[in-house]
């Protein structure tokens, strides 16, 4: 908040600096995590080099869950308090979440091709991620198809309904078919270190993207407000 809104919600120079530092740090950490994942961590015995995509894939998945939870929080608070900043949070998080889920699906496919010998299979976790992606793509479409405060309320309702649906979808797809997803069993310390660094690095990067997105949306809101005040 302090990084975003200075006097009267106007993004300030000081905020700019903090965000720039955050962006720079996350860039460095991403570079470090690339090194850890691609070079430092030992090769997995069964899967070989393909397993290394995991250091990108898992942080993305974690990030997307966090993003969708933020959509839910923003939606609840928007309906409750009516303050537009919550709506901005929800809508920025939804975009970041959809971006991450898309990446999760793509990196997952790239991994699945050599390991499962197919780009796609209706395995529960894949199915779950795909349904999740569809819900939040629908969320973005709804934002596009409706306007103003009414559109924000509609989106908030979908953000809430979608979130409550997540555990039920999860349950249903797991009852529906058997899972093939690799389970982490006894991880090498080198692998674990690489994983932790990359999760941290990616979360920092996502926070950076989210904040930038939020600042942009806030500025947009302010422009709209000024337009209203000017009368046309």
């Amino acid at each position: 908040m302090s990084a975003v809104s200075g006097k009267g919600g106007v993004p300030t120079r000081k905020g700019d600096n903090l965000v720039n530092i955050l962006g720079f740090v996350s860039f460095l950490l991403i570079a470090a995590s690339m090194y850890m994942g691609l070079v430092f961590a030992p090769e997995e015995a069964v899967q070989g080099p393909a397993q290394r995509i995991f250091y990108v894939h898992l942080p993305q998945a974690v990030g997307s869950y966090i993003a969708f939870f933020l959509v839910f929080l923003g939606s609840i608070f928007y309906l409750w308090k009516g303050d537009v900043k919550w709506d901005v949070l929800a809508r920025s998080s939804a975009e970041v979440g959809v971006l991450l889920t898309s990446l999760v699906l793509i990196t997952g496919s790239i991994w699945a091709k050599p390991i499962w010998n197919t780009w796609w299979t209706w395995e529960p976790r894949l199915t779950f991620t795909l349904v999740l992606w569809m819900i939040y793509v629908a969320y973005l479409m709804l934002r596009w198809a409706s306007e103003g405060k009414q559109g924000a309320r509609y989106a908030a309702v979908l953000g809430i309904v979608g979130f409550f649906d997540v555990p039920i979808i999860f349950l249903s797809v797991f009852l529906w078919s058997k899972g093939l997803h690799p389970r982490p069993a006894g991880m090498d310390p080198g692998m674990l270190a690489a994983l932790i660094v990359s999760i941290f690095a990616f979360l920092l990067l996502f926070t950076y993207i989210l904040i930038q997105r939020w600042r942009w949306e806030t500025s947009k809101e302010m422009v709209e407000e000024m337009k209203l005040k000017l009368g046309r």
Binding site: E147, G148, E224, K227, L228, G231, R232
Partner: peptide, 10 residues
């Protein structure tokens, strides 16, 4: 009351 950027009531 405004709808988007249109003022219906000022």
């Amino acid at each position: 009351k405004s709808f988007g950027s249109i003022h219906a009531l000022r």
